[in-house]
Simulated assay, not measured.
Amino acid sequence: MRITVFTVATPDLEPAQLAAAAKRAGLDGIEWRYQDVPKPQKDAPSSFWGNNKCSIPTVWEEKDLEVFREAAARSGIQSAAVVPYLTPGDMAGTERVLRAARYLGASFIRLGVHVYDRTRPFAELFAQQRRYLKQAEELCRAYGIKGIIETHHGTIAPTASAAYRLVEECDPAHIGVLYDPGNMVYEGYENYRMGMEILGPYLAHVHAKNAAWEQLPEDPEDGVTRWRVVWAGLKKGVVDWKQVIDDLRAVGYKGCIGIEDFSGQWGTEEMLANFAGSLRKWLDPK
């Protein structure tokens, strides 16, 4: 298994700085965030989803992409993926991301998944999602780049089994699933190995981060104790990453594990080094 980093987690570094830091940490590839930085955020402190300095703009020209391609090439590291925030059904946007991925030499992109917020029935969202994925499959086939959906809380794919239902009629050579145990702390936990076995050939990528539940003060009005999830360090959260990696090995997974830390436990360079060291130790326990 190889180790990559998703640049949403490295907001303070420019592309060339990030590529060099990833190389120093011994990583194998970069997943480039594909999202605009809002104008009001451009002068704000760097942040994961705000002023992220390592983001491909959605309205790009080749000269914009060249910054990212050159950064990877200079550091001798692969552009593994382009990771946008697509709306399901946006075929023009999906193809534009595929064009960017082809220019960078990336092997996969992230596809959009419907949010589930109780405002629309699941059956309607499910049917629309499946249609989108079949359309996206044809584009991915034409571009030679895989499209993946992520197990993510707040969507119709919070679990491995739910994601499988969405992709099961697609060709796993072109459509797959990004398995994210950290997201599944929020919503969607299933036994890790069982989820991987359910996904089978659709298991295309993995993200490494962690999260934990914390208890809130008792509500004085109704006396109910409520809980919330917060991001945590790799070794500090609910996910047992040694077990996850043992299970990945057991099902024969040979893809990438992408670093996506939101804990703020370390600065960016230290975070990359710590994640890489821990993951390597679990990947090669000898």
Rank of each mutant, 00 (worst) to 15 (best):
R2I: 03
I3H: 00
T4H: 06
T7F: 04
V8M: 08
V8Y: 05
V8N: 05
A9M: 11
D12M: 02
P15A: 13
L27F: 01
D28W: 03
I30N: 07
Y34F: 12
Q35K: 11
D36P: 04
D43W: 13
S47N: 06
S47T: 14
S47E: 08
W49S: 06
K53P: 02
C54Q: 08
I56W: 11
P57A: 01
T58W: 04
E62W: 05
E62C: 09
L65V: 02
L65T: 12
E66F: 03
V67H: 04
F68D: 09
R69P: 12
A72N: 01
A72S: 10
A80H: 05
A80L: 09
A81S: 15
P84E: 12
Y85S: 06
L86H: 07
T87I: 14
G93E: 13
G93R: 14
V97K: 05
A100N: 13
R102V: 01
L104A: 11
A106M: 05
A106R: 00
F108D: 10
G112I: 08
G112V: 05
H114K: 05
P121I: 04
A123S: 13
E124Q: 14
A127E: 15
Y132D: 09
Q135P: 02
A136D: 06
E137Y: 07
E138Y: 03
E138S: 10
C140E: 06
R141V: 08
R141S: 11
G144R: 11
G147E: 03
I148R: 01
I149P: 00
H152P: 06
T155Q: 09
T159V: 07
A163F: 01
V167S: 11
V167N: 12
E169V: 06
E169W: 00
D171S: 14
P172W: 06
A173E: 11
A173I: 00
G176T: 05
L178G: 02
L178R: 02
D180V: 11
D180P: 14
P181N: 07
G182C: 10
G182T: 04
N183E: 03
N183A: 02
E187Q: 15
N191G: 10
R193G: 07
M194S: 15
M196Q: 14
E197C: 04
L199S: 08
L199K: 04
G200S: 12
L203R: 09
A204T: 04
H207S: 12
H207Q: 15
P217D: 03
P217N: 03
D219I: 10
P220E: 00
T225Q: 15
T225G: 01
W227C: 00
R228K: 15
V230G: 10
A232K: 15
G233A: 14
G233L: 13
L234A: 11
K235R: 14
K235W: 02
K236N: 13
V239S: 11
V239Q: 08
D240I: 09
Q243W: 13
V244M: 03
V244T: 02
D246L: 07
D246E: 14
D247L: 05
R249Q: 14
V251R: 04
K254C: 09
G255S: 13
I257E: 06
D261K: 10
S263H: 08
W266M: 06
L272G: 00
L272R: 06
A276K: 01
S278P: 00
R280H: 12
